[in-house]
Design a binder for these strands. Sequence first.
DNA 1: CATTTTGGTAAAGTGGCTTTACTATCGACG
DNA 2: CGTCGATAGTAAAGCCACTTTACCAAAATG
Lengths: 139, 139
Amino acid sequence: MLIGALLRMPAQAIQRRIIAELNAGGFDDLRVPHMAVLQFPGPDGVRPGVLAERAGMSKQAMNQLLKSLEALGYLTRADAPDEGRARLVRLTRRGRAVYAKMVDILQGVEREWSTELGAKRFTELKELLCRVWESPLAR
Amino acid sequence: MLIGALLRMPAQAIQRRIIAELNAGGFDDLRVPHMAVLQFPGPDGVRPGVLAERAGMSKQAMNQLLKSLEALGYLTRADAPDEGRARLVRLTRRGRAVYAKMVDILQGVEREWSTELGAKRFTELKELLCRVWESPLAR
DNA sequence: CATTTTGGTAAAGTGGCTTTACTATCGACG
DNA sequence: CGTCGATAGTAAAGCCACTTTACCAAAATG
């Protein structure tokens, strides 16, 4: 079993679970593509272009997602105070609520994995993944 | 940093790299959605419906991908010998070539990570991910 | 101040996925 | 053996996300 599949499968499982639990928990208007915006570390105080680059998509595509989430009441796009042409995404109360819910869900996943693997091994896993993340390989 | 991001980011990086290297290596007609078919453990000898379930999409969507890959010469859809209504996907020579290329790319990634982390830690990482995969959590 | 670059927006086009609907085959049961 | 429900696959229409192309405004460059 190669590393690609070993990372992809649990990552997908977590993604499906987040969507399902958000939809069941009062945020039934969120769809898979919206996750590109809400992904860690979240869009609050960030420029649209930066979000686009993070998500690996065009600025236009990101802008559509942002307009959608703005219409649904999760965020606003305000003019940046310092630079005339820039804008800043700000989460609304509802936006902060959904982000907090996502953190909750993920912490639930971590508790389950920790029980399954043992706390020591789970910590080890996270540390190894952190090392990968810090290295330039994962970019 | 929560486990969702720690798994997602390297998984995405690997995905991007696979696409880029395949496109640069003589398979420039493959797009991201096609990866849903070529994903481990590969489509050879498998029924369309099974592939759809693996990829987490409808049978119709999978069928469109299969038709696309058939038109590009990567696979064929033959009638299953045992059951009249079933079909079996078979990789063509070109299909096997691209699958082998994907394995090559992933082994390259594994070598790099192994160098970066150290062989011992990399093996440890894979073993932990295997444990997660074997447990029912990752489904 | 003119030119280029950068951040963002807008609209049309493309393509992938879902929904709805259908055919063919298999298995179970009377 | 024949009917009926379930299963495997296909087909077409609609929707939605993303790209492409084009554009405007503000900043940086000279």
